[in-house]
Simulated assay, not measured.
Amino acid sequence: MNKDVKIYIAGHKGMVGSAVWRAFEKEGYHNIIGFGSKDLDLRDQAAVKDMLAQEKPQVVIDAAAKVGGIMANNTYPYQFLMDNMLIQNNLIEASLHVDLDKFIFLGSSCIYPKLAPQPLKEDYLLTGPLEPTNEWYAIAKISGVKLCEAIRKQFGKDYVSLMPTNLYGPFDNFDLQTSHVLPAMIRKFHDAANNGNAPVTLWGSGTPMREFLHVDDMAKAVVFAAENKLPEHLYNVGTGEDLTIKDLAQTIQKATGHEGEIVWDSTKPDGTPRKLMDISRMHGLGWKHRISLEEGIKDTYDWFLENSNSYKEVKI
């Protein structure tokens, strides 16, 4: 792909979008554009169409979404369903409207059935019920995947969906009310360590297994998809390795220097028992992750410490 190609990254200020921007710049791409929410409301169909018609990008990457953990999904089901459908549908429809050939849609591993066989293959989509605690977000993302598949089938355009496993890294959300499990743990252990190594209470039993991918590795997968015409419409992006939530907690506890007790609140939901991605499809094309979990957690915690003034410590 020519380094002069114009690339529009929706959601460029978020954790994923900003990582994608950095990855393209690192590879020598310099004609990259993005708009903050104050300048462009992606839920406004007319505004999105006008922007694409005016800017005429050659590649559109949808890294914009309303995201959050179990608590946020349970508390705001309507927003998680409606806002995400509006954002992605407007971007996909506007891209087709301006005859754009390359569109990369980013989703989540939560699109797969709760009790699907492990590891999760792309073919397992729509083969069983979803995990109830995040089905609102999942249904929105599934509709985006199917829209991109429909456009490939009907119009022959290179619209591809990348489904990452649990992402983490710099610019993550560390707010305890809305964050995902890994950044929430970093925040909890950090605050507890600074409060006399107070006990840390975590949701569930600690037995579910999860896979985690550093956002910079995900960003490289996006660049890979942009630079190559991928033969399928849907690809899992992950490490192919998982660990228990309890092991994750102990890894983060060590990284933050917390020496107190970990308490598991079994009255809170565990979520899906296991979510390991089958990444053979992407591996077969040549993409593989590079950052280990231990290295990635250290990198993320270092970033958190450098930016901890953005997060008020919680007295425990």
Rank of each mutant, 00 (worst) to 15 (best):
Y137E: 10
P269S: 05
G204C: 10
E122L: 11
W136V: 07
A72Q: 14
W203E: 11
R43I: 02
V16G: 06
I142Q: 07
S280F: 01
D50W: 01
K288P: 00
I33N: 04
Y76C: 05
R43K: 15
S143M: 15
L293S: 01
Y159C: 03
C110A: 13
M185F: 13
P119Q: 12
D4L: 13
L96S: 10
D265N: 15
L96N: 04
L120W: 02
P269Y: 00
L52Q: 00
M51G: 00
F155N: 10
V67M: 09
R274W: 06
V5A: 14
I297K: 05
D172L: 08
A140M: 08
E259W: 02
R152K: 13
R210T: 06
G238V: 04
K312N: 09
W287Q: 02
K298H: 13
E149M: 14
P199H: 12
P132G: 08
W303I: 08
L120K: 04
N73R: 08
V67F: 06
F105H: 12
N134K: 11
S143R: 08
I104L: 14
F80I: 04
P208F: 04
K246M: 12
S108A: 13
L100E: 02
N84Y: 04
V237G: 03
A47F: 09
G107N: 13
K188S: 15
A63Q: 09
H190L: 07
E232Y: 13
R152M: 07
K66V: 15
S95R: 06
V48Q: 00
D299V: 07
L125W: 04
L202N: 07
H289S: 14
A116M: 04
L167N: 02
T256K: 03
M85C: 11
A63T: 09
N2R: 02
V60E: 10
A192R: 11
T207E: 15
E295P: 01
A65R: 04
V200W: 01
D62N: 15
W303P: 02
P208N: 14
T267I: 03
D278T: 09
G284V: 06
E306L: 12
Y168M: 06
K153P: 01
W136L: 06
G296R: 04
L213N: 08
P269V: 03
F212K: 10
T251G: 02
G286E: 03
G34V: 14
G34H: 15
